[in-house]
């Protein structure tokens, strides 16, 4: 996985709010984000975060969940009352129901602590790109036939190209076919045998783990963190599916 390079003019000085009660984490994230050319605003609890958002034009918020005075969940809920600015939760709680709660309350993504700084950068970029180019302000122009879209992924059957968050991805023909199959019916679970039969047009006998290996390769190309995939989810014992994002 490598960090995706974004042209400077696209960044165009975005304002990012970092909110965490641990000052060292805030300053570390500060260094990373400023190195990438973003403007940062620090906040050390939920109330400060709300105040900063009110006083400045903020394009993205990185928010810790466990904070004094006003925690991240409540702050997110309050922010969502008037703004659709992307919010990425930084959480030490790795339990599923915490993640579900965070996403339900209106967060766009989450990163569990201790996090890899590169992963955070990638997610920030992904969210910003979606917010500016695909989100509220501008309507996407390319709505022509043949293009399958899910979250940040765009797959064009005619040109056999795939882009993730606007960045082109190079896939082998088999990988493209598998991704195409999964994207035609997002949310549907395909077993390895089904995938093999539909993609290879052959009996799945003795296919062994060919499909699984290909899926892993696709994930490594399109996911920010292949160990925690956002798009291609493994449904253990049943198959694979494209998550609707």
């Amino acid at each position: 996985m490598g960090s995706v390079k974004i042209p400077k003019d696209v960044i165009d000085m975005y304002n990012i709010l970092i909110c965490d009660d641990d000052k060292d984490i805030v300053s570390a994230l500060n260094i990373y984000l400023q190195a990438e050319g973003y403007n940062t605003f620090p906040a050390y609890d939920g109330n400060q975060a709300l105040k900063v958002v009110e006083e400045n034009e903020i394009h993205l918020i990185l928010m810790d969940v466990m904070m004094p005075h006003l925690d991240g969940i409540h702050a997110t809920a309050r922010l969502r009352e008037k703004s659709n600015v992307p919010i990425i939760l930084l959480t030490a709680k790795s339990e599923d129901n915490d993640k579900v709660l965070g996403l339900n309350i209106g967060a766009d993504d989450y990163v569990t602590k201790p996090f890899n700084p590169m992963e955070v950068m990638a997610r920030v970029k992904s969210q910003l790109r979606r917010y500016t180019s695909l989100g509220g302000q501008q309507k996407p122009e390319e709505e022509e036939s043949g293009a399958l879209r899910n979250g940040g992924i765009t797959l064009e059957d005619a040109t056999k190209t795939v882009t993730v968050d606007g960045e082109p991805v190079r896939l082998t023909p088999i990988e493209f076919d598998i991704l195409h199959l999964l994207m035609t019916s997002p949310g549907k679970v395909f077993s390895t045998d089904q995938i093999y039969e539909l993609v290879w047009h052959d009996q799945a006998y003795g296919a062994e783990n060919t499909v699984a290996v290909h899926i892993r390769h696709i994930r490594e190309k399109i996911e920010i963190d292949p160990a925690n995939p956002r798009y291609i989810k493994v449904v253990w014992g049943l198959g694979y599916k494209m998550e609707k994002v």
Partner: peptide
């Protein structure tokens, strides 16, 4: 769950 399916998937991850 299909046990064979799961083992296939796991081996795919670990190959």
């Amino acid at each position: 769950l299909g046990m064979g399916q799961l083992v296939d998937q796991a081996l795919g991850e670990y190959s």
